[in-house]
Design a protein around this nucleic acid. Sequence first.
DNA 1: TCAAAAGTGTTGTGTATACACCCATGT
DNA 2: ACATGGGTGTATACACAACACTTTTGA
Lengths: 259, 259
Amino acid sequence: MTAGYDPHAFEPFAVTVDLAVFTVRAGALHVLLIRRGQEPYAGTWALPGGFVLPRESAETAARRELAEETGLAPDVVAALHLEQLRTYSDPDRDPRMRVVSVAFTALVPDMPEPAAGGGGDADRARWVPVGEAAAPGADPGPGSDPGVGSGLAFDHAVILADARERVGSKLEYTCLASAFCPPEFTLGELQAVYETVWDTALDRPNFRRKVLATPGFVEAVPGAARLTGGRGKPAALYRPGPATTLHPPLLRPSEGPTR
Amino acid sequence: MTAGYDPHAFEPFAVTVDLAVFTVRAGALHVLLIRRGQEPYAGTWALPGGFVLPRESAETAARRELAEETGLAPDVVAALHLEQLRTYSDPDRDPRMRVVSVAFTALVPDMPEPAAGGGGDADRARWVPVGEAAAPGADPGPGSDPGVGSGLAFDHAVILADARERVGSKLEYTCLASAFCPPEFTLGELQAVYETVWDTALDRPNFRRKVLATPGFVEAVPGAARLTGGRGKPAALYRPGPATTLHPPLLRPSEGPTR
DNA sequence: TCAAAAGTGTTGTGTATACACCCATGT
DNA sequence: ACATGGGTGTATACACAACACTTTTGA
């Protein structure tokens, strides 16, 4: 595969980005995957990503790839929360050549049709529940496409696991949960994000107090209220506030057996 | 476009590692710097680092460079705490060519003679107080070497600032502080680490309780006691325990205006 | 009238902070 | 004796978990 490349200079490194893009859909954490069209790992699922171009930083490349592979509008992509996870540099992580990959984590709200319509690679993309994507060889049920659940390409299973862990931790001490929500959301929706990512139930009154007591976490939308699926009392709407960190943190219940 | 590995589609990237190695000396946080011998930035100070070799991961390269530039024994280097910070990939961060650098943070105990004796690049290395290294253009006092304090090479000032911030945060929710201490240490020494890195005073009785109440943070060395510089009551000695995370965290006082 | 979801109140338990106090050692 | 640093005790404030309760909507 490296034929045609100049063999006399030092061995070239390729630098790529890989993206772990998460969303919360239907009460489950989903990750954006792409079915590979070429070898190696043709036909298997992989994290979206691609090469860093000569005049790009890794961050720029990540946003460009994200736009190409989700079909989102450029201004939406520019505003997304995108964060470096870590860099994966094992010499054998790609069977053909030396590829060092900078992995990123992105959090997006649930989109009407996640990765359809737009040209480019978007038609090969799909939202996959992380439980399904992370389980190697355990294909869950007959309804799901073949390939998902039978292992991700390259070291992407490791990257996904690292990213998932990072997202869980981030919710504890940052205000990032609102990145999973639409521009205006109810506290019930925000709580559902926490419960989905952490896979734990939270006490609603205490969650509510905690969020409202943290200055700048959320801001009330003055007169607005939303009918939550028809049933129940309409809930007040909130917007993300200016704060970015949570002091003191909002710890998940399972963690920290204090005694 | 994204999935294709066209070898002609990209220019070669060089991949390097940069190391922010910290220690606590004489009540101040110090970082290991190297005076550059070659252009660009010849004569100015820089973080130690170097190229990732064709068959190395970034982690392996970081440990190798650390051993070469500090003259430490290989087994000591192998046991050190080394952690990926992030990757710096701005296209213009190196004036000569495209260099992507994976930055690492390392925490080491105070060493008798930090970077002397051993061959290689160790004789160009020096421990520098971070306040001195971080201040661009502020040369502190006539006793210090010229060059330190007049700005670091490349984007190393940014890397150093990021690393310093990370170390401060790490002390809050991990047991890493003991990495700055000798194999056996007193609680006073451990507290001094926190106070030095955070630049705040801590209440000794409360700090003591907090550390001892966290299972696995430290383990008492049975019969031992050390005379702390001669003055005062001899202090009990402790070893690092098996725990790695701190639940609940040990927050620095300045952070988190709770109200 | 009932179910469902939002929102408020109260109370016990634990952790943190601030500070007072005692102990052992060198000068 | 006294300064210095190690170690213990305790009262107060604050934060959190648990749970009972009220409110507003659709069916």
